[in-house]
Design a protein around this nucleic acid. Structure first.
Lengths: 213, 213
DNA sequence: GTCTATACAGTGATAGAC
DNA sequence: GTCTATCACTGTATAGAC
C-alpha cells in the first residue's frame, strides 16, 4: 500500500542496519564524508564490502542508514527530557543535550559527522529532507518545552518558535566551530553566555536556575 | 629565507589565483566538496584541467587557494565596520555581516562552501589551521568592537571574548541550518532574537539600537 | 546471506606538443 | 603557460561460488 517513493532504508533488517550504521559512523569519524569509501566502511566491520551492498543498493543508501540512526540517537537524547516535570530543569537539561558533551568522543563524532552531511545537504535531496525533518522536530520539541514553562508561569512570554530556533543555532554553531575545530577554550564561554541568556531572557522574574548553574 | 613549511598557495600569481578561486567556488556551489573533482573545477572556467595543475601541485592546493580567498572575503566584509565611529552602529553592522544576506546567492554559496570545508577540518590539517585562524580573527574583531562600546560606556561590562564567541556561534549555526537546509522561515526569528539579545544584554541601560531595529 | 574475484567508470595527475 | 592526450589507480558495484 505504500504509494510513497520507497524508503531505501526501510527493508534493511534491524541487525544489519545496526552493523551498517556503526561501520559508517566509525568510517566517517576516521575519514570524513568526503573521504568515505565503501572499502573503508567495510574495513570498520568484520563483514566484507559485499555485505553492505547486499543490504543496500548503493553507498548512498548506507549513509542514509547511518543518518536515520544518528537522528534517532540525537532525538532520543533530547526527548529524554519529557520525563522531567519541572519546566526549568527540563529546559536546562534540553540545552545541555543540544550542546552535547565535548569530552565524549562518541557524541563529538556524531555531531561532526552529522554536520558534514548537513553541509552537503544542498547537493543531496535525501540528506536535505531527513536533516530538515530532524531539525524541525528538534525545534518543535524545544518550543514545546518553552510553552510548558510559559503556561506554568515560570518563563517569560517569549516567542517559543523563535527562541527555540535561537537556542538551536547556538548549539549547531558550537558543533561546528568548537567540535570540528577543537576550539575547546571557547566552549566554556559560549555555555556561560547561553545559560545567562536563559536566566535573563527566558526565566520569569524571581525564578532561579537549577542547582549548579 | 622562508624556513617555514612552504605555503602551497604563496607562489601562485594573483591572476591565476583569482581564476582558481572562482572556479573552485562555482564548482563547490554546484557539486559540494564531496562531489568536487578537478574536471568539474576546470569545467567552471575557460581554462583546461592542466591549467590548474600547472599552478598548483594537487587538487588539495586548489581548494586551499579558494579557502584563502573565502577567508579574506569574509574578513573583509566584517572588518569594513572599522570605518564606523559609533560602537552601537558598529556592533549591529558587524552582526549583519556575520549573519550574511540570505537572499544573496554569492554570500550564501560562500557560507555553505566554507561550512563544508569546516566540517571536514578534523580530517584535514591544512583546512583546520586556516579555518581556526579565520575563526580566531573573527572572534578578535568582534571582541574589539565590544570593548570599544564598553570603554565608551554604551555597552554593559560584558565579557568581550565570551560574548563574541556566543554571537559567532549563532551566526555559524545559522549558516548551517538556515543556509544549508534552506529553512528561511526560521531565519527571521533567529535574527530578531539575536538583536533582542544585543538590546537587552549588551547595550547599556538607556542606549537605543540603530534606526530600524 | 556472505564471501572472493572482478568489471568498468571516473579520478588525480603527467607528458609532450605548441 | 596552456593545451590535448593519456596513464595508473581507486572507487562503486556486480557475478557467481559457497
Amino acid at each position: 500500500m505504500s504509494e510513497e517513493a520507497a524508503d531505501p532504508t526501510a527493508d534493511v533488517p534491524d541487525d544489519a542496519a545496526a552493523e551498517i550504521a556503526d561501520a559508517v559512523r566509525r568510517a566517517l569519524a576516521k575519514h570524513g564524508y568526503a573521504g568515505l569509501t565503501t572499502k573503508k566502511v567495510a574495513a570498520e566491520s568484520e563483514k566484507s564490502e559485499a555485505f553492505f551492498f547486499y543490504h543496500c543498493d548503493s553507498k548512498h543508501d548506507l549513509i542514509l542508514v547511518f543518518l536515520d540512526y544518528a537522528s534517532e540517537w540525537s532525538l532520543g537524547r533530547l526527548e529524554a527530557v519529557t520525563d522531567i516535570a519541572d519546566p526549568v530543569e527540563k529546559l536546562y537539561v534540553a540545552c545541555e543535550a543540544l550542546l552535547g558533551d565535548p569530552d565524549d568522543e562518541f557524541s563529538r563524532g556524531m555531531n561532526v559527522a552529522v554536520m558534514e552531511l548537513l553541509a552537503h545537504a544542498p547537493h543531496d535531496t535525501a540528506f536535505h529532507d531527513r536533516l530538515e525533518a530532524y531539525e524541525r522536530r528538534v525545534l518543535a520539541d524545544l518550543a514545546s518545552v518553552l510553552e510548558d514553562g510559559i503556561d506554568a508561569g515560570v518563563f517569560r512570554a517569549v516567542d517559543p518558535e523563535a527562541t527555540a530556533a535561537f537556542l538551536l543555532m547556538v548549539a549547531d554553531g558550537t558543533a561546528g566551530a568548537v567540535h570540528a575545530l577543537g576550539m575547546d577554550d571557547v566552549e566554556a564561554g559560549v555555555r556561560d553566555r547561553l545559560f545567562d541568556y536563559l536566566e535573563t531572557s527566558v526565566l520569569a522574574e524571581g525564578v532561579t536556575p537549577p542547582e549548579g548553574r
